[in-house]
C-alpha cells in the first residue's frame, strides 16, 4: 500500500514541479529558477482532489521557498532562529516565502487613525486593537506604504505576513514579533537571493 502511495505522491510532485516550472500550455517563459534545496514541494495527497469541499487554488504562485533558520541567522545579525513560547515550547523560525506573480494588496491605512506598532520600526496600523488581524503600513517620513498584515499569535504577542515586491515578483513571508525589528534586513536578504535566482541572471 505504501509503495502505491509513494508512486502516487511521486507523480504528484512531478506534476507540481511541472506546474511551478512555468512550462504550461501558454508557453510562458520561466522567470524564476531557485535552487531545489530551497524549494518546498507540497505533498498534496491525490485522493484529496476527490473532495470538493475546498476552495479553488489560484495560479499566481510560482514557488514556495524555505530558508532554514540557522541559514537566515548566519546572514542576519540578531535574527532569532528559535522562539520560546510557554504555550508551544521552543519553535524553529525558518523563513517560508510564497513567491507570487501578484499580491492581494487592495488597501491603504487611514493616516488619521494610524498608531505605531510597538514591535517594529516605522510600522503603523489603523485597525482596532480588539480585531484579530491588523493591516499594517510602513512610514517613510512622508507617506504610508502597504507593508502586510499582523495578527494575534494567541500567546500574548503577534505574527505578521509581510508582502514584499522584488522586481516583478511578490514575496510573502511570515515574521514573528521577536524578529519584526529586523524586517529591513530580511527584505534585503530575500531581495538578494530572489534576484540572483531569476532565470536570466543564470545565463
Amino acid at each position: 500500500m505504501k509503495k502505491i502511495l509513494f508512486i502516487f505522491t511521486g507523480s504528484l510532485i512531478a506534476l507540481l514541479a511541472y506546474a511551478f516550472s512555468g512550462n504550461s500550455t501558454d508557453k510562458a517563459p520561466q522567470v524564476f529558477c531557485p535552487p531545489k534545496d530551497f524549494v518546498v514541494n507540497l505533498n498534496i495527497p491525490p485522493e484529496a482532489y476527490t473532495d470538493k469541499n475546498f476552495d479553488v487554488s489560484d495560479d499566481e504562485e510560482l514557488a514556495l521557498l524555505m530558508f532554514p533558520p540557522e541559514y537566515v541567522a548566519e546572514s542576519i545579525e540578531n535574527y532569532q532562529p528559535y522562539l520560546e513560547s510557554t504555550r508551544t515550547g521552543r519553535l524553529r523560525a525558518p523563513l517560508h516565502v510564497n513567491v507570487r506573480k501578484s499580491s492581494h494588496f487592495n488597501w491603504h491605512i487611514n493616516p488619521d487613525h494610524a498608531r505605531a506598532l510597538p514591535h517594529g520600526p516605522d510600522l503603523y496600523t489603523d485597525t482596532d486593537e480588539e480585531e484579530f488581524g491588523w493591516r499594517v503600513s510602513s512610514f517613510d517620513g512622508e507617506q504610508f506604504h502597504p507593508w502586510g498584515r499582523c495578527s494575534d499569535d494567541f500567546n500574548g504577542s503577534l505574527s505578521c505576513f509581510r508582502d514584499l515586491k522584488v522586481g516583478k515578483l511578490w514575496l510573502k513571508y511570515v515574521v514573528q514579533a521577536e524578529n519584526i525589528a529586523y524586517y529591513p534586513e530580511i527584505d534585503a536578504f530575500l531581495t538578494e537571493h530572489v534576484t540572483a535566482w531569476r532565470c536570466d541572471s543564470k545565463q
Binding site: L42, F54, D55, V56, G133, R149
Partner: peptide, 21 residues
C-alpha cells in the same frame, strides 16, 4: 487572511494548497 483578502471563490474557505502550505 483569506477572508480579508477575498482569496479564491469563497472568502474564508481555504484551498488544498493553502492547507498544505
Amino acid at each position: 487572511n483569506d477572508y480579508q483578502d477575498q482569496i479564491g471563490q469563497v472568502p474564508g474557505l481555504l484551498s488544498l494548497k493553502q492547507m498544505a502550505d
